[in-house]
């Protein structure tokens, strides 16, 4: 084969690779931008500063064991609210927070992708297995808000609806460091 033919073949191969890369870029960039929270690789976690949360053992270890869920008071006067999203419930399914105080909502998923929204507020927090998503809430007025799931998660998705009770800060119970509060029934 002549050198010219080899050169032409290389050029074709290069064009093909380049085209594939461009397709990958066009498809991959929006995927990476919208689904980044579902990626789970050691490199990604190192980049994002995430620690892996094992969705199968949430009930055995870590911060999402069942008696650590709900609202907790931090030393600096802020509050942390931990919830699990799972098919087809948010747990605890009724949570209570004080009004006008920053509340750090920490959320993880025990199975697939979910998203917690608060009706009446401009708020959406995605939940994905293996990672914790966090957002800070500061709700000025007391009230009761439904918190439906906004990511289709299966046949029970429509009924996946938790309840948020915001009570005036002065009426919110005084929490000890080990106290966790929610308004779920049992």
């Amino acid at each position: 084969m002549s050198g010219e033919a080899i050169g032409a073949r290389r050029a074709r191969a290069r064009t093909a690779v380049l085209q594939m890369l461009i397709v990958l870029l066009i498809v991959g960039t929006p995927l990476a931008m919208t689904r980044f929270y579902e990626f789970d690789s050691p490199l990604w976690r190192a980049l994002m500063g995430h620690r892996r949360v094992d969705p199968e053992t949430l009930h055995l270890q870590g911060e999402f064991v069942e008696n650590n869920l709900g609202t907790a008071r931090e030393a600096d006067g802020s509050y942390t609210l931990r919830m699990i999203a799972q098919q087809y419930m948010f747990v605890p399914h009724c949570v209570r927070i004080p009004a006008g105080v920053p509340v750090h909502l920490r959320l993880t998923s025990a199975d697939g992708a979910h998203a917690l929204t608060i009706v009446g507020l401009d708020f959406l927090l995605k939940a994905a297995p293996t990672s914790v998503t966090q957002a800070t809430l500061r709700i000025a007025h007391a009230g009761v808000f439904p918190m439906p799931c906004a990511e289709f998660c299966g046949p029970g998705h429509l009924a996946m609806n938790a309840r948020l009770e915001v009570v005036p800060a002065e009426r919110f119970q005084n929490l000890q460091p080990t106290d966790r509060v929610n308004c779920a029934v049992p």
């Binding site: 500063g49 995430h50 270890q61 907790a72 920490r106 990672s131 460091p177």
Partner: peptide
């Protein structure tokens, strides 16, 4: 990046 260090202080023993 999400702050990833939940403090273990004050966490009740797991049930």
């Amino acid at each position: 990046p999400t702050p990833s260090s939940p403090r273990a202080i004050g966490q009740p023993p797991a049930r």
